[in-house]
């Protein structure tokens, strides 16, 4: 069994009558690229705030590296919570020196991390002169100081323009390839889908799902077929026991295939039935579809 880096046990947080977090349990293992997904206000930042000691939990507990959390664990964690935060009247280098002091890290790493996020040239500019994208990159540089074992990024692309988003994404991919444990909270589904290996989906402080992203995407593989004779196609497909019709309209029918089936076999079957095919394509159901399904399900339950 692999090593659990962060273990969250029935964590709850109340703000007056509002439950921001409702008995959330979660395990994050070493080497995971773990996405925490959820709409705004679903408890992502609250969860990360609690495990980083910025927010006090109402009840429940959590462990870092299997131990009761202390400040020394946080020194091994690089984190950005919400918007980038630094002393505006100080340069990037001076700001990072403070972070290095707190983390008991060497100043020697500062040029290195600044280069990683492409801010080395602007290292002596005051923080307040930075654009939002640069501020966000500096926050990532700060998180990388002290060679952390775990990196926590909360909405790292929030408020950025497309160029800024792709820059941050490149940096994340670069970091992820080193083998760090990475926790990424986001409401942007395709961001999570692109980089994460595991995902937890939250809504209103409750966990709707957690597991490998592959599992979600594998089980939701489906094929779209179209034919000039849609009636015959529909009839043939509905009697075929190795597929299941998911969706049908005037132009295409979407079917879910049996595990051992593949699209060429489906093609062969339809040809044998004498149905000509004008369109066939394999669709991976995106995380977005799955996410929306889950949300709809949870709404059905509650309403």
């Amino acid at each position: 069994m692999s090593e659990v880096v962060l273990s969250i046990d029935k964590l709850s947080k109340r703000y007056g009558r509002i439950k921001a977090l409702d008995e959330l349990s979660l395990d994050i293992e070493k080497g995971n690229i773990f996405g925490i997904l959820g709409p705004n206000g679903s408890g992502k930042t609250t969860t990360l705030g609690i495990v980083l000691d910025a927010i006090n939990a109402t009840s429940g507990s959590f462990k870092w590296f299997g131990e009761t959390p202390t400040k020394n664990h946080r020194k091994k964690i690089g984190a950005i919570l919400e918007s980038p935060v630094f002393y505006p009247y100080m340069s990037a280098t001076k700001n990072l020196e403070i972070i290095a002091e707190i983390k008991s890290a060497s100043y020697d790493q500062i040029p290195e991390v600044l280069k990683t996020v492409d801010l080395f040239e602007r290292r002596n500019s005051k923080f307040r002169t930075y654009s939002l994208g640069m501020k966000q990159r500096l926050a990532i540089a700060a998180a990388l100081l002290g060679k952390p074992e775990v990196l926590i990024l909360d909405e790292p692309t929030n408020g950025l323009d497309p160029k800024g988003i792709s820059e941050i994404r490149d940096i994340i991919k670069k970091i992820a390839s080193v083998g760090l444990t990475l926790v990424l909270a986001s409401h942007l589904l395709d961001e999570v889908q692109k980089v994460c290996t595991h995902v937890a989906i939250l809504e209103k402080g409750k966990k709707l799902f957690s597991g490998r992203i592959n599992e979600i995407l594998k089980e939701t593989l489906y094929v779209e077929v179209g034919s000039p004779d849609m009636k015959a196609l529909h009839a043939s497909l509905s009697i075929f026991n190795k597929v299941q019709i998911v969706e049908a309209d005037d132009n295409v029918i979407a079917v879910k295939l049996d595990e051992k089936m593949d699209s060429s076999e489906l093609n062969k079957y339809l040809l044998e039935k004498g149905i000509s095919i004008s369109h066939i394509s394999i669709k991976k159901k995106s995380l977005e579809n799955y996410f929306l399904e889950l949300l709809a399900e949870s709404h059905d339950k509650t309403s």
Partner: peptide, 10 residues
């Protein structure tokens, strides 16, 4: 907040 998150205790 950043000071605490980075590794200072309160």
């Amino acid at each position: 907040r950043q000071n605490i998150v980075t590794g200072m205790s309160r």
